[in-house]
Computed example of a mutant assay.
Amino acid sequence: MAVASPTCILCRRPQLTAFEGLMVKGRYICNECERRIIVLDRGDPDYDYYKWGLKKIWCWPTNV
């Protein structure tokens, strides 16, 4: 039986390899979203989307 790989908490992209992206509190963030977060500026139209997505990691239980 295959084990399902985690999907990115922000864009829902599946993790392809064990050494890809970030795991924070049991939640996965893909490389592309990680890069996007690093360069985000407060005035960027995507800022609130990524901020909301990161709140899911800190505010919601990990077993949901």
Rank of each mutant, 00 (worst) to 15 (best):
D44S: 14
C30V: 04
P61G: 15
P61W: 08
I38F: 00
G43H: 09
L40W: 02
A4C: 03
R27C: 03
V64Y: 02
G43I: 01
Y50Q: 10
V64Q: 11
R36F: 00
P14L: 06
E32H: 06
D48W: 03
L16S: 13
A18L: 08
T17S: 14
G26W: 00
P61K: 15
C59V: 06
D46P: 02
A2S: 07
D46M: 12
E32M: 05
I57H: 07
I9D: 03
T17W: 00
E20A: 12
P6K: 11
R36A: 11
Y50G: 14
I29H: 04
C8E: 02
I29E: 02
T62W: 00
T7E: 05
V39A: 04
C11P: 04
L22S: 12
E20L: 05
M1R: 12
D48L: 13
I57A: 07
G21L: 05
I37N: 07
K55N: 14
D46W: 01
F19L: 12
C33H: 05
Y49P: 01
K51D: 08
C59S: 14
K25C: 07
G43M: 04
K25P: 02
L16P: 01
Y50D: 09
N63C: 06
V39P: 01
Y28F: 15
G21R: 12
C59F: 02
A2K: 09
E34V: 08
G26I: 02
R12F: 00
V3I: 05
E20V: 06
K55F: 00
I37F: 01
T17N: 09
Y47S: 14
D46H: 08
E34N: 11
